[in-house]
């Protein structure tokens, strides 16, 4: 079930990345796709009725700790990449004064010509 939902959220993010005209929507789509990947990894390590990998549980009862350890690093990297994207967006908006991919492309083409 969670795997299915992670696929759905990933494709929602891809759809927004391709279709939406606003830059900030593209960044939101990136965040959504990243969250979907994390969700997929977590649901891959889980089985029904297993406990968190902390020492009170028996070894056989624990979930797989490896995907969780990898995904903690993924979350922290995710916020730094989001911050870089937001910084680029901020500069773009300050320079061209618009939030629209198509208008931005038009302005850039006129500048080049």
């Amino acid at each position: 079930m969670a795997e299915l939902v992670s696929f759905i959220i990933f494709f929602l993010g891809l759809y927004a990345l391709v279709v939406k005209r606003s830059v900030i929507k593209s960044i939101i789509a990136l965040v959504l796709m990243e969250t979907a990947v994390i969700l997929y990894f977590v649901s891959g390590g889980f089985e029904e009725g297993k406990l968190p990998p902390i020492s009170d549980a028996l070894p056989e009862q624990m979930v797989d700790p490896l995907p969780q350890a990898l995904m903690i690093t993924a979350i922290v990297i995710g916020i730094s990449s989001t911050a870089v994207a937001l910084a680029m967006y901020s500069q773009l908006h300050r320079k061209y004064g618009t939030d629209d991919w198509k208008k931005l492309m038009k302005i850039r083409l006129e500048e080049d010509a």
Binding site: I38, V42, V63, Q68, I75
Partner: peptide, 19 residues
């Protein structure tokens, strides 16, 4: 619910609040 309290804490602090 999926037995990942470390991740839950990280997502709540970083993903939900700071981002």
């Amino acid at each position: 619910f999926y037995s990942a309290p470390d991740l839950s804490l990280a997502e709540a602090v970083i993903g939900s609040a700071l981002a």
